[in-house]
């Protein structure tokens, strides 16, 4: 079985967001870069399938030179190969999806694993787009995955409960928290990864369908009011304010 895991390098989720001087993107100063958290579940699932069923796991990332850190980490965790598709961030999920689809086409991947969204851009779109571009089945927000005989059965967070999606392989699966518990890289893995090569390819240039023209911070909320008295007095004052002042009840 051949598995492709797509990984995105993103700012650490605790990052305080500052807007860059051009007003269109994140100021990269002081930003710590990590693997997008949902992508870690995708990679872990790929590695577990490798261990249980035997598979060759290729990690791929679309991004700049520094995204190699994410790929190096994937190698340390147990990925067999790593490929960087060099490209600059455009904010267009379809452009990223096309770059990935062009790379994956014809390489015989049985399973393509993604995080359900990349932290930051928060589109939650690339997995589904790659599925469409390659004409594959998809299941998003997956918390449990079973494979057998060219088919998959996935449990996903759907409307009003857990949905069971069944489909044919090859397929795109996007991971949700709960799918598994990602491992940490051990010293041996880290040392071994240093000796492995990360293949670097120029990402195929594709026309953007949209661009980010401005990045702004949300307005700060004015400090509110604290309510006095004992619990009963506070409760009744609050309900009064919610009903008559804020008019939300």
């Amino acid at each position: 079985m051949k598995i492709l895991v797509a990984l995105k390098q993103v700012p650490d989720t605790e990052t305080k967001i500052k807007v860059g001087a051009e007003g269109r993107s994140l100021d990269p100063a002081d930003v710590k870069w990590i693997t997008s958290p949902y992508d870690e579940y995708a990679l872990e699932e790929g590695l577990r399938l490798k261990e249980s069923k035997g598979a060759e796991v290729t990690a791929v990332s679309v991004g700049p030179e520094k995204a190699k850190d994410v790929l190096r980490n994937a190698l340390a965790l147990g990925a067999d190969a790593a490929v960087l598709l060099k490209s600059n961030e455009t904010g267009d999920p379809l452009a990223v999806a096309k770059t990935l689809a062009i790379f994956a086409e014809g390489k015989g991947f049985d399973l393509l694993l993604f995080g359900n969204k990349g932290f930051g851009a928060d589109n939650g779109a690339v997995g589904a787009m790659v599925a469409e571009l390659l004409g594959l089945a998809q299941a998003n927000l997956v918390t449990k995955l079973e494979l057998e005989e060219g088919r998959f059965r996935a449990e996903r967070e759907g409307d009003g409960g857990t949905e069971v999606v069944e489909g044919s392989l090859p397929a795109v699966i996007t991971a949700q928290r709960g799918l598994n518990e990602p491992r940490y890289a051990g010293l041996k893995g880290i040392m071994a990864a240093k000796k492995k090569t990360i293949e670097e390819l120029e990402g195929t240039a594709v026309a953007a369908t949209l661009t980010v023209s401005a990045l702004t911070l949300p307005p700060t909320r004015p400090e509110g009011r604290k309510l006095d008295g004992d619990a009963a007095a506070q409760a009744s004052a609050l309900l009064g304010l919610l009903r008559d002042e804020a008019k939300v009840l």
Binding site: T15, V212, S213, A214
Partner: peptide
């Protein structure tokens, strides 16, 4: 079409301009 959308889990907002035929 132009859209405003939350990014970085709503810690910032991006203004997005479409250039495709269908948006």
């Amino acid at each position: 079409l132009q859209a405003l959308r939350p990014v970085y889990a709503a810690k910032a907002f991006a203004t997005v301009d479409f250039s495709s035929e269908v948006q």
